[in-house]
Amino acid sequence: MNTKDALINYCLRLADNSMISGQRLAEWNSCGPYLEEDIALSNMALDFFGQAETMYEYASQLINNNKSADDLAFRRSEREYFNCLLAEQPNGDFAFTMMKQFLFSTYAKFLYEALSASNDETLKGFAERSLKEVKYHFRHSSEWIIRFGNGTDESLKRAQFALDELWRFTDDLFCMNATDEELISTGITVSSDSIAAKWNLTVKEIMQASHLTIPEKFNVITGGYSGIHSEHLGHLLCEMQYLQRAYPDAKW
């Protein structure tokens, strides 16, 4: 794979991760446990949509503007989406969503820290700006995990259930393919191994503080970054892309 194609794929991966995470969080609109939390969830969704837009625009430039940022978001099908499996999983209850957020934002935090030293200037700028946002997502979600673990029996049980269910999708975050190989060799990104090591340490630390048990690896599923998804993504895209698909000639 040449560097340009790899970079396009990588931008789409970052954009799709944010887009799908944002879409899932947006499902919480008017469904939060209280108003302040509703606002916090929509804040994070807005951060994600902003990040997605920036990366779709960069990808659009790299493919010579043959496709707009909106085309990339709203006219690609599930096999052309490169987000991680974790992001597309349904929200479940509040503990489930926060566990997803925690596992993902810990990853995003270390990834964007690394990408802040990328030798691609646009990616570097994006990572620096997004890092501030995902640090807040990390703080918000890790505080909730600790509250769940040190709150009531019910909150502990729900958080443990979420961790057990979601753990199988965490290897997927660190899967590398030809895109990564090319971009590591050119200094645009780093190996996921270094991110995974930091991620494991932090996750362990927070789970310990929350009396949560990290499960044995069982039925581990990967493939998101290569466009092999769970069945959930298709339904999410169906809803998200409805107007663009139903009225292909319309401008909005």
Binding site: S30, C31, G32, P33, Y34, E37, D93, F94, I146, R147, F148, N150, G151, T152, E154, S155, R158
Partner: peptide, 16 residues
């Protein structure tokens, strides 16, 4: 519905 569903979260925050 969502106010009721959020009850355990509010309880958790208070207990914490």
């Amino acid at each position: 519905k969502y106010h009721q569903e959020g009850q355990w979260v509010r309880d958790c925050a208070r207990a914490f």
